[in-house]
Design a protein around this nucleic acid. Structure first.
Length: 586
RNA sequence: GCGAAUGUAGCACAAUGGAUAGUGUAGUGGCCUCCGAAGCCAUUGAUCCGGGUUCGACUCCCGGCAUUCGCACCA
């Protein structure tokens, strides 16, 4: 028996076909709009009948009845159908169909195969994290890294070849001041001990020593020009800055489970901006204004007067130049079908201008235009609603933040589960602490600001990583007691269809996994998956409370173990797609 | 000034134009001789304001208000 992964999509197709079969007027225009439903109404509901019928002066309920009558009879073996309210068609999976679906999607591989149709054969470049070199990563870098990685994993899961590209801020005027400071005050011991710390100190010294209009500033500028002209000493220094920065960043990335394929920073595009200037001028998209090369968009209410500045009046490039070159490189070199850039919402204007320009430029040149997405997110604030700072007013370093998360998780684990060996508690604290930080970011809509609260992210109840990890630990615990491996075919073969209300509710929830994935990846909003996992864990907890799994009756036991195994599979798969690690005890 | 994002219970969040706006916390009342009570069950409480479109609006459109942010050579 073939069991479809995405049942909603199946029903949608069946209803569209039924409209034709039933001979509805204008049937080709009928959009069934099948959605997951409130469980009180069913598993899926078709919303499209009302609008379709009303627009054609048909009776919606009568139209719904015609549609239902024209559905293939086999559908009724899987679903109970009800026409409800003004013309909704409700579909409720029968227990046997629930069993079939739950049986069928029994591994990560099967889930992935089901989901992979969405982006099969496509290449997507995801540009995220992207810190500036020679500086510490701080709390402001958290969201891009966490959200970006989740998006990468979701795209991969849905069939894409994903290229993770760290677009480092490794070029610009600040390097003149840094080199100026370095050449005068570098402390070699400090550099060996904590390179980024020392580079930050040197930059501050260099910056303070070069006020506007001073001869020192002129000297710093000369260092920058030497760097740009390929002076061996300065280039070597700059290279060192990048290397030690990357090494420091990688320590953070390791803890967050991030591994980039490329680190093509701004410097990589230095020799690629001339082509951008040339082509923008040749296509008449760019013009000279106040000495700078700019692009206006006459059709746009604001950008017809607010310029997109692609080359500065002094002839130097800026981030518009390099971002344009970057878009071209990703399209030509990686053959990207889609490009996703994950930065905070303050850069929305820049990316809107960038994408407008890219589309016109590529169209004028006959280059294929990839899908371009700017994935934005709000600020991280303290509980007072202001930007998150330490008590003394400094920025919070990402390393310190992750350390504190782990320390706090360790304290909680030790309190709740003191009998576990210390080494295991330490390991658990790593997963729970870092996971709590990641999940706090992924559990809510990225568009809004997010209020950073240790107590909330580390709470054991509510939509948090610890709650989800706890559900996972409890399921593992049951399998340990049963002496059975989750997903063991011999155990599951005896399973029957779900019967109790809690079993049915859990099984019904499990069939909604495809929709959660689809929604999360379509909107590039991972919180839809997080929300699903939280609801799944809630349904599991209710089931766990209502129905004892390890009962004597072998059939009942088998079917409940089956539900446990699939819940576990989806929770683990889902959390891993969000970038978290999972555990078996906590 | 122009523009963007956000605005949902005391607090923090959800809601893919659909049915009685969901959840967590805090509050109240229950449930451990029972697989992990880090849990479960029940219950009180909300769409910034005013118009409009629609069979149907937290959602879309128009006009306000509030908060945050952006707007010529930083990225």
């Amino acid at each position: 028996m073939h069991v479809s992964f995405n049942l909603a999509a199946d029903l949608d197709a069946a209803l569209a076909a039924a409209a034709v079969a039933a001979g509805l007027p204008d049937a080709a225009a009928f959009l069934p709009e099948v959605r997951t439903a409130d469980p009180r109404h069913g598993d899926f509901q078709a919303n499209g009948v009302l609008g379709f019928a009303k627009a054609r002066k048909l009776n919606p309920r009568a139209t719904a009845e015609q549609l239902v009558a024209a559905l293939p009879p086999a559908l009724r073996e899987s679903f109970d159908l009800v026409i409800a309210g003004p013309g909704f068609i409700n579909f409720t999976l029968k227990p046997a169909a629930l069993l079939a679906w739950v049986r069928a999607f029994d591994s990560v591989a099967r889930l992935r195969t089901g989901a992979a149709a969405a982006h099969a054969g496509q290449t997507w470049v995801v540009d995220y994290s992207s810190p500036n070199t020679a500086k510490q990563m701080h709390v402001g870098h958290l969201r891009s890294a966490v959200i970006g990685e989740a998006i990468c994993r979701l795209l991969e899961f849905t069939g894409a070849r994903v290229i993770r590209d760290n677009h480092l801020g490794d070029w610009g005027t600040q390097f003149g001041k840094l080199i100026y400071g370095y050449k005068r005050w570098v402390d070699r011991d400090a550099l060996a001990r904590d390179a980024i710390e020392e580079l930050e100190r040197l930059y501050k010294l260099g910056n303070n020593a070069t006020p506007d209009g001073s001869p020192e500033l002129e000297e710093a500028r000369r260092e920058l020009v030497k760097l740009q002209n390929g002076d061996a000493e300065n280039v070597a220094l700059w290279r060192t800055f990048s290397e030690v920065s990357l090494a420091a960043f990688q320590q953070i990335y390791d803890r967050l489970g991030i591994r980039f394929d490329y680190h093509l920073g701004e410097s990589f595009y230095n020799d690629k901006v001339d082509r951008v200037y040339r082509e923008l001028e040749e296509t008449k998209l760019a013009e000279i204004s106040e000495g700078a090369l700019v692009v206006f968009h006459p059709e746009h209410p604001r950008f017809k007067t607010q310029p997109f500045l692609v080359r500065k009046a002094d002839g130097a490039s800026n981030y518009a130049s390099t971002d344009l070159a970057t878009a071209l490189y990703r399209t030509e070199h990686f053959n990207a079908h889609g490009i996703v850039v994950v930065t905070d919402f303050r850069q929305a204007d820049h990316f809107e201008q960038l994408f407008l320009t890219v589309k016109k430029w590529f169209a004028a040149r006959g280059y294929r235009v990839p899908e371009l997405h700017h994935v934005t997110f709000g600020a991280v604030t303290g509980e007072d609603g202001k930007a998150l700072k330490t008590r003394s007013g400094d920025v919070i370093r990402l390393k310190a933040l992750l350390d504190e998360a782990v320390d706090r998780a360790y304290a909680i684990v030790s309190e709740k589960n003191a009998e576990l060996p210390e080494a295991e508690r330490r390991a658990i604290a790593q997963i729970v602490g870092v996971g709590a930080v990641q999940y706090a970011d992924l559990s809510q809509n990225r568009s809004s600001n997010y209020v950073f609260s240790w107590d909330k992210m580390l709470a054991l109840d509510g939509n948090t990583a610890p709650y989800l990890l706890y559900a996972i630990a409890r399921i593992h615990s049951i399998f340990r007691r049963a002496g059975v491996t989750p997903g063991d075919p011999a155990t599951e073969s005896a399973a029957t269809a779900p019967e109790t209300p809690a079993e049915i509710a859990l099984a019904r929830k499990l069939t909604k996994f495809p929709d959660a994935i689809r929604l999360a990846v379509e909107t590039l909003r991972p919180h839809y998956l997080g929300l699903y996992l939280f609801e799944l864990a809630g349904d599991y907890s209710s089931f766990n409370n209502a129905d004892k799994v390890l009962v004597d009756d072998a059939t009942v036991r088998a079917r409940r173990l089956l539900l446990c195994a699939r819940t576990l599979l989806q929770l683990e798969t889902g959390l891993q797609l969000l970038g978290l690690r999972t555990l078996t005890r906590m």
